[in-house]
């Protein structure tokens, strides 16, 4: 790749995507606190589209659902039945169903912008938004634990798991403390962000390679353009799948953390 990538004709050459893609130049209010760049614009668009879509679907809700309403209801039902009821149980889960559904739809919308032509970057591919969602999950599962067992009971059940000889607590308690306070929220945020970053880099690499092979490369190399084009289309489909999968995993793990802190023994 390297000798071909080095440009001979002097017109740009192959430009691989870099981490600079995620820090574009500001487009509005440059130099002020309200500095506004492309990714924030994408986030805003995604949020507006999601809210408008859901409001329109809810306004036109009928007893016999149309196609759009049926699709939305299917996703709502999926979160409520396959995530909330299965992990938290229908009794206890009712309180968290709204939060988990909101998080699911939000992450799905912000992830999908990564695979939409023209937007081309996931709203969750900068750490800010995943951290916000992870903090929401963090506050929810900590307060759920304190509400269900009281502060002392929650600390006891999460830091001193029962059924272990007492000297093991010297080793276990610090690990559990780190797990509950740092690792759980941090991995929630990092998993979401890193997935979207790597997805964008893969897609951008394939598109950039296609452009290079077709437009600039030597005639013998143009064939590879077809290969990278097919790969980029396949990867776009894969990104849509990953967007849904990451929304699902985030919500499932949040539900698992809530159930771990609500249950007295695990």
């Amino acid at each position: 790749m390297l000798p071909f990538a080095a440009d001979q004709s002097g017109t740009g050459g192959f430009e691989p995507p870099s981490i600079a893609d995620f820090f574009p130049a500001p487009v509005l209010f440059q130099g002020t606190w309200l500095e506004f760049n492309r990714i924030m614009l994408v986030r805003l668009i995604a949020a507006l589209v999601l809210v408008t879509f859901m409001v329109v679907v809810a306004r036109r809700a009928r007893l016999v659902p149309g196609r759009t309403q049926a699709a939305v209801e299917m996703i709502l039902d999926f979160v409520r039945v396959n995530v909330v009821n299965e992990i938290l149980g229908s009794e206890r889960g009712r309180r968290y169903a709204a939060m988990l559904t909101t998080v699911f739809f939000g992450i799905l919308a912000f992830n999908l912008t990564g695979a939409i032509p023209g937007l081309n970057i996931a709203g969750t591919s900068l750490i800010g938004l995943p951290v916000l969602l992870a903090v929401w999950a963090y506050v929810t599962y900590l307060s759920a634990g304190v509400k269900a067992q009281g502060f002392g009971g929650f600390v006891k059940s999460s830091l001193f798991p029962p059924g272990v000889p007492w000297f093991m607590y010297i080793l276990l308690t610090p690990i559990e403390l780190l797990q509950v306070l740092v690792i759980r929220p941090a991995t929630l945020a990092i998993r979401l962000m890193a997935n979207m970053v790597s997805g964008h880099l893969m897609l951008a690499l394939c598109f950039a390679a296609t452009q290079y092979f077709v437009v600039e490369a030597a005639p013998g190399l143009k064939v590879f353009g077809a290969l990278t084009l097919v790969a980029s289309l396949a990867l776009t489909a894969f990104e849509v799948f990953v967007a849904a999968l990451q929304a699902y995993i985030f919500v499932v793990l949040t539900a698992v953390y809530i159930s771990l802190s609500v249950e007295a023994e695990h």
């Binding site: 396959n82 299965e86 992990i87 991995t187 990092i190 998993r191 962000m193 890193a194 997935n195 970053v197 790597s198 999968l245 699902y248 995993i249 499932v252 793990l253 698992v256």
Partner: peptide, 24 residues
């Protein structure tokens, strides 16, 4: 299989984050 699938995805979440930590 439904229960196994959910548990698998939870496990995938934990395993996957290790590879992604390597990326970031």
């Amino acid at each position: 299989s439904g229960q196994l699938r959910t548990t698998m995805f939870i496990g995938i979440g934990f395993v996957e984050v290790l590879g992604l930590l390597g990326l970031i």
